[in-house]
Amino acid sequence: MLVAQLSSQVLPKEASLSEGLTLLWQHPQIRAELKELFSLLSDRLNHLQSMTPGGDSIPLAPHARYTRLEILAACLPEDRATAPVWQTGVRWLPESKIDLLAFTLDKTKGQFSPTTRYRDYAISRDLIHWESQSITRSQSETGVRYRNHSKQGSRVWLFARESVSDRAFWFLGPAQYVSHEGEQPMAITWRLKQTLPGDLFQTFAAAVG
């Protein structure tokens, strides 16, 4: 994830992790600055964080924050140094069988059109209301995958940020389909496997209040 964040703009997309690490090691001044930064950031942790439950090897911790690039880098094969561009709110990773759903809570700011002002919010500390893309029907391949992800062996991971000015998203963790209403978009209720901390729930509630 670190290598992808630092080198995605300078390495070819086929570059290996070894090539990325070699590039980083050629710049001792950057390594020294990172060492200082890591020490500083460790003092700013405000949530107890553990890796994704279920023994998953993907290094994402619920209730930590990640950029889109970091999220994709974490989910890619381990020998990759760069991550592809991700600009939309949804991303299906067929190799990992994971649906990544990233949404913005406060849509009063930014370039949200009437067709992209989806109603996404926390219902409670363990339930999330989320709306799919406006083209998604319940019987489409994507809609069926959302509804039957447990039976089909795929996973759904939720990421949320307060506003478009935030580069990073809070990782809410894995989620389980509960129900949905309508289509185009589908209004889906997801149940989080890890309950939201009280402060995040209050923040999310205020962002859409």
Rank of each mutant, 00 (worst) to 15 (best):
R68G: 13
D106E: 04
R145S: 15
T52V: 06
L72Y: 10
T104E: 09
V164R: 03
F159N: 02
E70Q: 00
A74C: 15
G182C: 01
Y177M: 10
L93N: 13
Q29D: 14
H27F: 09
V85K: 11
E95L: 12
Q139Y: 14
A207R: 00
I98R: 01
I58E: 00
G198I: 07
A4F: 02
P174F: 04
L127W: 08
R65V: 10
A206W: 02
T82K: 07
S18F: 01
Q5P: 05
A4C: 13
S150N: 11
Q176R: 03
F204W: 09
Q184I: 11
T116Q: 01
Q5M: 13
R65D: 09
R31Y: 13
L158I: 10
I71G: 01
T88K: 03
A61N: 04
L100Q: 04
I135V: 15
D43T: 14
I58L: 03
N46H: 06
Q133T: 13
Q184T: 15
L100M: 04
G110R: 09
T88P: 02
A32M: 07
R119L: 14
W25P: 11
P84S: 10
I135P: 10
I30E: 12
F38W: 08
P53C: 06
Q176Y: 07
P174A: 15
G143I: 03
D199G: 13
G173Q: 00
G209I: 02
Q133N: 09
K151Q: 11
F38D: 00
S132D: 09
R91K: 14
L172T: 01
Q9L: 10
F201S: 03
G54M: 03
W170I: 14
L200D: 06
A175F: 01
L45V: 08
V10P: 08
Q133A: 12
